[in-house]
Amino acid sequence: MSFRRIFLVKCLLLLFPSVKCSSSSWVYRAVNDTALLSPAAALLPESTDQVTWSRGRQRLVQLRGSSTKHFVNKEQCRCAMLHNRTLQIRRLQAEDSGTYTVMAYLQGKLQAEENITLFVQEPVPQPILISKCGNKNISVKCEAKQKAKDEAFLIELIQPNGKKIQKNATMLEWHGWNPGTFRCVAKNKVSEKMAEKVIKCPGKMDFYLILSIAGGAVFFVIFVICLVYCIRRKKTKRREVYDEERAMHSLPMDSKRGTRELPQTPPKATPKQLRVQQRPLPPQPLEQPLPPRPQPRPRAQPRTPNLPRERP
């Protein structure tokens, strides 16, 4: 109950003591926990002499003066009223959920009444984060299997870019393309659990890797082409310089003047030289043939030896 509401109730009780005041609130507790249902102090003034807690039409416990009276079995109810008029319920079960009413009396007259609604919930199970990489997107599934029937809780999926998707269900699916860290949160009023997973699809990462490799390969090919062109151009320049130096060294140089000697043209022949060249040459004597060289004598053939005559 808010401070403003308590203040208004106090003002009404001071201005109109005979007016009956009522209020309501909500309390959430987990199974096997202990619930303390405390009424608002403004609704239960100290002058009251009787306080009764009930659930529906069933009275549970009554405090009159300093004595306490139970209308149900203590073990079955698992409830007790404290001295400050707070109802205590131990080892909560799902069937303990409901609306509890506290009524304050003064000399048999009802002075105030308050309704407190108790919600007993199971703790949420551990969520499971499942991912699947497709050709063009990423599929993420956040699932938490609920234990009790007809009980839903809030499930939340936090994407890498910080966006949240919430739904009152036990399963949540998301389809996108950006990888990163995903968080799956399952929570209700009494508990909260989370699962976290880093999702990186190889296909998505390979796209950028292939793109970078292709760019590097193109750059390398361009670099090789430029390098080959520069080397060939340098070789061509060196060859031209070598040819020029070779041509310069092939021409005769005058050691004294240091100038090139051009080939001299033959002088023109005079008429006298022409007449001399036109005269016929005197006949040359014929060369007599040399006598033949003497041939060596042939060697005499060896005589055959005389065989001895045979005697008659």
Rank of each mutant, 00 (worst) to 15 (best):
Y242H: 12
R260P: 00
S54P: 03
S66P: 00
M205H: 04
V276K: 10
R299N: 08
L227E: 09
C79H: 02
V241G: 05
G108A: 06
R246L: 15
F182P: 03
R59L: 05
C79I: 01
P179I: 02
H249P: 00
Q88C: 13
K74L: 11
N84S: 08
Q50W: 06
N84M: 06
P282M: 07
L43M: 08
L106G: 03
Q301L: 15
N306P: 13
S38P: 02
L13K: 15
Y208P: 02
D33G: 12
A30P: 04
C77N: 07
P308I: 04
N73I: 00
I213C: 07
M103R: 15
G65S: 07
R260C: 08
L281T: 09
E261V: 14
R260L: 15
Y105M: 09
A247Y: 07
P298M: 10
V198G: 00
L36A: 10
L307Q: 14
P127V: 04
E261S: 13
D49P: 05
D254F: 06
T181A: 08
Q159S: 12
G203Y: 05
R57H: 09
W53M: 08
I128A: 12
P292D: 11
M253Q: 11
R29S: 10
F3E: 13
E75Q: 13
A300D: 08
W53G: 02
Y242S: 13
C230S: 09
Q301Y: 08
K200I: 07
K136V: 08
Y242M: 11
L118Q: 03
P39K: 05
R279V: 08
F182W: 14
P305I: 05
S2C: 07
C11Y: 03
L12Q: 06
C226L: 14
D33S: 15
M253V: 12
S23A: 15
L12P: 00
C226N: 09
L15D: 08
H83K: 11
E122N: 05
K145Y: 02
Q284G: 04
R233M: 10
R309D: 12
L110F: 04
I89L: 14
C230R: 11
L209T: 10
P285V: 05
E287R: 10
S131R: 01
L44V: 15
V221K: 04
P291L: 09
K136Q: 14
C142Q: 04
K268V: 11
L251Q: 12
D243W: 13
L290A: 11
I231W: 13
E46V: 11
G162E: 04
Q111K: 15
T117L: 00
M81D: 01
K204T: 03
D33E: 15
T34L: 06
Q295M: 09
G65P: 02
G56I: 07
R233E: 14
I138K: 01
A30E: 14
R303L: 14
K145F: 06
Q264P: 09
H83D: 15
K197S: 12
Y28V: 01
L262Y: 15
V241A: 15
C142T: 03
V102C: 11
